[in-house]
Design a protein around this nucleic acid. Structure first.
Length: 246
DNA sequence: AACCGCGACAACCGCGAAGCT
DNA sequence: GAGCTTCGCGGTTGTCGCGGT
């Protein structure tokens, strides 16, 4: 038995096309089955992810709007890292997208706070010693990349409540180590208190995510088959957008 | 022009829950 | 009820493009 190795990495347009077609035939379930019969050399898991995060009709692409940003902050302060739950309240956005946004956004905030803290307490060594500066390797900030270590040269603006939270976080971290995520959580919850009150009450978007999945797609099924037969994949995929710069 | 830092996004992995036999 | 399979979630890593130096 010579089994081809399962493909990993970026999806090609052809793979997207195949996946879209087979999901249209069999629906959004039995991903292992779809992976098998489609001839895609992918795991069911990978197929599902690709569909949910990229190929699903009705996905919004592009930057988050200010409303969406506020809603993410609000919901995160309520539910924590329940990304899928948060995503259900943002039609067209995926949990992955929100998660990525959150990490980027909060990382930036945390870095700004760290810098603010350092500049405001340069005379005191107690707080700066709690942060994971290059010369303080013992503290659990666990940066995954150079970018997370933060540059000391940039300037950032910030609010008072954030200062308090990060200061408090610094106190704790001195005691026993404190993860970046925990600090971000604190930052977010303080932001929510200061700036987002009442927003959620006035914003309750329709849950199109809940009903768009099958019905929307099915209307295109015949078109899809035609395009496959005609070799018109480029057209279809361009409608979904494909990777960067589409 | 080359390099670097950073943001944005895609994709993988591990684990637990849910569903099925 | 046990064992197995499938699915979904959250965390993490990798890659690419862009702007600044």
């Amino acid at each position: 038995m010579v089994q081809e190795e399962t493909r990993k990495g970026p999806w090609t347009e052809q793979e997207d096309l195949q996946l879209v077609y087979f999901v249209s035939l069999f629906g959004e379930r039995r991903w292992d089955f779809i992976a098998k019969v489609s001839g895609l050399n992918r795991t069911g898991k990978s197929c599902r992810l690709r569909w949910v995060n990229y190929l699903h009709p009705g996905l919004k692409r592009g930057r988050m709007t200010p409303q969406e940003e506020r809603l993410v902050l609000e919901l995160h302060s309520r539910w924590g890292n329940r990304w899928s739950r948060i995503a259900r309240k943002l039609p067209g956005r995926t949990d992955n997208e929100i998660k990525n946004y959150w990490r980027t956004h909060m990382r930036k905030k945390a870095q700004e706070k760290k810098r603010a803290l350092l500049s405001s307490s340069s005379s005191s060594t107690s707080i700066s010693s709690s942060l994971s500066l290059p010369d303080n390797p013992g503290v659990n900030f666990s940066p995954k990349s150079k970018s997370e270590e933060g540059s000391l040269h940039d300037k950032g603006s910030c609010s008072r409540d954030l200062d308090l939270v990060v200061k408090a976080a610094g106190e704790v971290s001195r005691e026993e180590g404190y993860s970046m995520d925990q600090i971000w959580e604190e930052i977010a919850s303080s932001e929510e208190v200061s700036s987002i009150q009442g927003y959620y009450k006035s914003f309750s978007p329709p849950m199109i995510w809940d009903y768009c999945s099958d019905s929307l797609w099915r209307s295109n099924e015949e078109d899809m088959k035609m395009l496959l037969l005609m070799g018109g994949g480029d057209l279809v995929i361009s409608n979904y957008g494909h990777g960067r710069g589409s």
